[in-house]
Design a protein around this nucleic acid. Sequence first.
DNA 1: CGGAGCCCCTGTAAGC
DNA 2: TGCTTACAGGGGCTCC
Length: 261
Amino acid sequence: MPEVETLVRLLAPRLVGQRLLNVMTTPSRVFRGQQPVIAACLTGQRIQAVERYGKNILLRLDHHRVRIHLGMTGKLLFAPAPATHPRAMLAFEDDLLVFDDIRQFGRLELLPLEEGGPALGEDALAISPAAFTALLRERRGAIKNVLLNQHCLRGMGNIYTDEALYRARIHPQCPSFLVPRRKVAALHVSMRALLQEAIAAGGSSISDYVDTDGQRGSFQNRHEVYGKQGTPCPRCRTAIRRIVVCQRGTHYCPRCQRLPR
DNA sequence: CGGAGCCCCTGTAAGC
DNA sequence: TGCTTACAGGGGCTCC
């Protein structure tokens, strides 16, 4: 999500008010069957707003919205930043924006102006302490699962979930309703601070992520557990461990983050 | 409801 | 130098 927020902050001032002069697409699953109609629908419309909804980027135009999800390797690049797997090219009056996606786990789809699109949980940056506590109390699953589930909470991805749980000293497999009250409060604080710090750093670039000008973020340099298996915990020097939780690589300190009981 | 397993793709790095 | 396997910032599906 910090990567998406970084993109939205770069896109909005540059695109709002510009008219789409031409749209080109190449055959790809990112369009989910809409490829034939996308160019015809969008050409000629003006960008009214660029917003983030969880990890989605929403372009609001005169008569439609466009929902862009970057998946694992999606990029939005302003020419002349180099694209290797261009799926859509949006030609504006003053800019050429390319949706590039190696693995095609991303998507670019047309939505009506009102309604439609996914209904997700509250935004991780905006949720209140009370709502966050209630969410964790009512769920039975592992806390990592709850944080990652976009229908529970929108915006948290794998990197930031591991980092936030580390900061709050919570084991990723701990059932969310069993997390002690004071750790829930600590997690609420650390999660939002972490996301803000990552946004300020332009997001994390592990291998693929770059911003609209092809620039990498720098927050990967401040990861404390993500990808750090085998290296000493910054707090207690115990080796960071990697396990699999809900099919995702999960990194934590076995000493700082204990399962209760 | 929750969790496991598998799938969608391409590229890279590590292991033999 | 090869070939094979594991794994990757996400999410959707079925099955039990």
